[in-house]
């Protein structure tokens, strides 16, 4: 055989063709008695959570009644799970957290000190000192 193929998987580019929201499930755990769950209980009763769920139909909302402090759990499609404490928060603060983390990619946050992060090769190419005319080349 002259040429063999090296099996390399293709790389996902979410948003180039279709966009699939990375956050697919949110679990809201609250207590029906404790004072730290006041905000969540308000959110459930005043219909704001219903509106959020209707706006984000691609996310499944799972409401769990359990004793203890309230907690938001976000499930992402890269197998990561983020657990957020929301004890003693008002309904507005919890709504803000829900919106923030439902738009998250699920990756860990990191600092990147360069201008571009890309999986593509540079369009310009890389400058080479060997391709300038011979008389202008640097001589050692």
């Amino acid at each position: 055989m002259p040429i063999k193929g090296i099996p390399i998987p293709s790389v996902a580019r979410n948003g180039v063709g279709a966009f699939v929201k990375p956050c697919y499930k949110i679990t809201i755990q609250y207590c029906n008695w404790g004072g730290s769950s006041n905000g969540v209980r308000q959110l459930l009763s005043n219909g704001k959570l219903n509106n959020l769920a209707l706006e984000n139909r691609e996310i499944m909302f799972n409401i769990v009644k359990q004793k203890g402090h309230p907690r938001l759990t976000f499930h992402y499609n890269n197998d990561s799970v983020k657990e957020i404490e929301c004890r003693n928060n008002t309904d507005g603060e919890i709504l803000k957290k829900l919106k923030e983390y439902s738009q998250n990619s699920g990756n860990k946050l990191f600092k990147y000190n360069h201008k571009v992060l890309s999986i593509n090769d540079s369009v310009r190419g890389i400058w080479s000192p060997m391709h300038i005319p011979k008389e202008h080349r640097h001589k050692i």
Binding site: G5, I6, P7, I8, S10, V11, A12, R13, V16, G17, A18, I119, N120
Partner: peptide, 9 residues
């Protein structure tokens, strides 16, 4: 729409 690294194959 996925990126295919065909030059590495």
């Amino acid at each position: 729409s996925r990126k295919l690294p065909v030059d590495k194959m």
